[in-house]
Amino acid sequence: MTLQILLAVSAVLFTFGLVAALTRRNSIMVLVGIELMMGAANLNFIAFWRFSADPQALTGVMFAIFSIAVAAAEAAVGLAIIILVHRRIRSSNVDDAEQLKG
């Protein structure tokens, strides 16, 4: 197995996340797309660490751990905002949240 395969898997996963974030109507599914993209980035960190010249430095592993922590914080705040918006406009459809539209 070469690095190519892992990077290709990661690219496909990132594309799924991007398509979900761009096309889904429900704001929770937009967040799901963002989480998928985060997962693809973490897979890249681990793949590059696995194929690096000096894996004992554990740089990729460290980066992936911090990335997961930041993703958890992002998910918590994002879902809180979604619930808040839902309480205000009674909808979790991204097209309905247009009060800030000029």
Binding site: E35, R50, A64, I65, A71, A72, A75
Partner: peptide
Amino acid sequence: VFIALGAEFVGFVQLLVYVGAVAMLI
């Protein structure tokens, strides 16, 4: 995948944080 690539710690953190917390939140 993480565990099979040799990053066991990240794999278990992934399972705990994403499957245990983020998926439940969603």
